[in-house]
Design a protein around this nucleic acid. Structure first.
Lengths: 239, 239
DNA sequence: CGGTTGCTTGAGATCCATCAATAGGAGTGG
DNA sequence: CCACTCCTATTGATGGATCTCAAGCAACCG
């Protein structure tokens, strides 16, 4: 919840009252093991999962055994930003690491948004950024090479994690296997491995024990055709 | 506008009053030549483009000259379904064919949605379907082969066009070049051409003079791993 | 200690891109 | 009506990126 609020500050200037208001959204927290699907709890008006801790993803499993990850969720991410409607979810959400999820009540979220223009703006900002991330994902899958996809992802995560205080200047924890990276980026695990080695050989990154260090951010961004504006980091010290 | 309403009927049962209400959304219609960007007209609170006639797309042009089409818009599609907020658009919209666009006023749309629960439901349904289409696009780009991507697209368009009365049992008009298909599906025009020939050789489709005929829908769907549920065609005679 | 999972490496096959050239249709101007 | 151009579709030849299959190795865990 703290991370969610930290992130929303990037979308609109929140007063202390706004933040107290957001705190009231807090719902029940449950733990999900790695590799388990995250089920929505409250039945009819489905609860919206908010990631408190750990990494998750939305995915689709094809009939031929292939799997594609639609998007990643990191701490502070609300998994169903369209939080108001007769919800049908086409794509399941799964925990990548062990995860703590909070169940946000859709009605409470809507009420909170209506209570304060700043909160309303921040929530819409969050939705639009999430949508832009999905669209950049389409661009990566369609028109970027394997190394470019990896580099672009690392640059994106650097900013997204920094927005919730989980990245510093040098890098961040990346608790995700090469097989999952493959499913995310439309590659095989073998090729992810080789492309990572290319990036290492170029002196752009280090990746060891699930810690990613970005050694040359400018070059990595240039190589990946990364343009940060789609993440709209207007506020705060991000660049 | 008529097509927009026809589509929304698939999302919720609209009364005649609802439909009259939706008619009041009508705004100024402008013509855009093929290959031109579609600019939003009204300045501060940006107008939402509704495609009246012709095909359009959202795209991104990379610095290295490559282009990726994020999604297609057909008649009856509202290009910015998030129609309420301090809008920043990261990805431009372009006309593929000559296009007529109506400018919908965001405030009017919001008021209309609040006026009737059925309209509200239908608009959310439209948003969620559009979002699911983008996600299926991610799956195609990541995990489907060239022929599968083409087949999946043709199956999807068959249903989307049928929802607005632009497809019959046998097929539909497909006014889009092979180069644009390549930019949409993450392929080169040359390879699109060859993959189309594969589909023709298998007796699955015919494509001539921009008219697509689907000769064997069941096989095409099976080959493309197409599962129609993500389009949620609950109502009407679609299958 | 055996079993599992994740990372790494090699060799060969396949899919798709690239480069290049031809041909047809639509529009344009003489 | 013809010459010309532009755009799209088509075909061929070749190379490169990525996949597939296979094996080995390290780390972790009960």
């Amino acid at each position: 919840m703290k991370r969610f609020i930290t992130k929303l500050r990037h979308g609109a200037p929140l007063t202390e009252a706004d933040e107290r208001q957001l705190e009231t959204l807090s719902g029940e927290v449950s733990q999900v093991e790695a590799r388990r699907d995250i089920e929505a709890e409250g039945a009819p008006a489905r609860a919206l999962p908010l990631i408190i801790d750990g990494w998750a993803c939305r995915y689709q499993a094809l009939e031929n055994g292939k799997r594609q990850i639609i998007g990643l969720y990191i701490p502070g991410d609300l998994c169903e930003p369209f939080g108001a409607m007769p919800q049908f979810t086409d794509f399941p959400i799964a925990a990548i690491t062990a995860v703590s999820v909070m169940s946000i009540h859709p009605d409470a979220l809507r009420d909170t948004a209506q209570a304060s223009p700043a909160i309303n703006t921040a929530l819409w900002w969050d939705l639009l950024v999430a949508s832009a991330v999905e669209r950049e994902h389409i661009v990566s899958l369609g028109r970027r090479s394997a190394s470019e996809r990896l580099g672009h992802l690392f640059c994106e995560l650097q900013l997204r994690l920094a927005m919730v205080g989980l990245a510093d200047e040098t890098g961040y924890e990346l608790p995700i296997s090469q097989a999952d990276l493959g499913d995310l980026l439309g590659l095989t695990a073998v090729h992810v491995n080789r492309s990572l080695q290319d990036l290492r050989r170029e002196g752009l990154i280090t990746l060891k024990n699930h810690r990613l260090t970005i050694q040359d951010l400018e070059t990595l961004r240039a190589l990946s055709l990364f343009d940060a504006t789609y993440l709209h980091p207007h506020r705060g010290a991000l660049r």
